[in-house]
């Protein structure tokens, strides 16, 4: 389960809508409670999409931004608990591209959320979150609640 702080959700909404019609991406900072599959997100941090050639339907999160944001998270006793990206004019379910790239990196990543936000010209249309389990994306429930340490 992914628990989103309302301000983090608003920040992602603003980011995806201002980036439309291009894909945007960023990282989710929060806490992953030990022994539980629950991730609590305190903040969403935008990162650069390095894929400029196909920015409408691809993203490549800047590794330098990952390093910078992860350092900041550690210094504030938070951790990077997942990634978000937008699907302009596409549903908020993982594409085969999403799955292949996730599998290549992690194989399985049950402690990490892939949040996908569908965005159209009128604004954010839907958001769903996914967890990679043995190479297959399974949907996880999202709740919106204020983050508390």
């Amino acid at each position: 389960m992914l628990i989103l702080d309302p301000e983090a959700e608003n920040a992602m909404r603003d980011h995806t809508e201002s980036g439309y019609p291009h894909e945007v991406c960023g990282l989710l900072l929060g806490r992953c409670d030990a022994g539980s599959e629950m991730r609590r997100v305190a903040e969403a941090r935008p990162a650069a999409n390095l894929n400029l050639e196909r920015a409408a339907d691809r993203y490549e999160l800047s590794p330098a931004d990952f390093l910078r944001i992860e350092r900041e998270a550690r210094s504030r006793e938070l951790e990077v608990v997942g990634v978000y990206h937008s699907h302009p004019d596409h549903p908020s379910r993982p594409s085969e591209t999403d799955r292949l790239r996730a599998e290549e990196i992690w194989q399985s990543s049950e402690s990490w959320s892939y949040l996908i936000l569908e965005v159209a010209s009128g604004g954010m249309a839907s958001r769903r979150s996914w967890v990679l389990k043995q190479g297959i994306f399974a949907e996880e429930e999202i709740q919106v609640l204020p983050f508390r340490r």
């Binding site: 409408a56 490549e60 590794p63 390093l67 990634v83 591209t97 990196i105």
Partner: peptide, 19 residues
């Protein structure tokens, strides 16, 4: 540091549904 990437483009979406 992982090189996280993906995108909306569906690719072979049938294989995703199958899995």
């Amino acid at each position: 540091v992982p090189a996280i990437a993906g995108g909306a483009e569906a690719g072979s979406a049938n294989s995703l549904r199958g899995k």
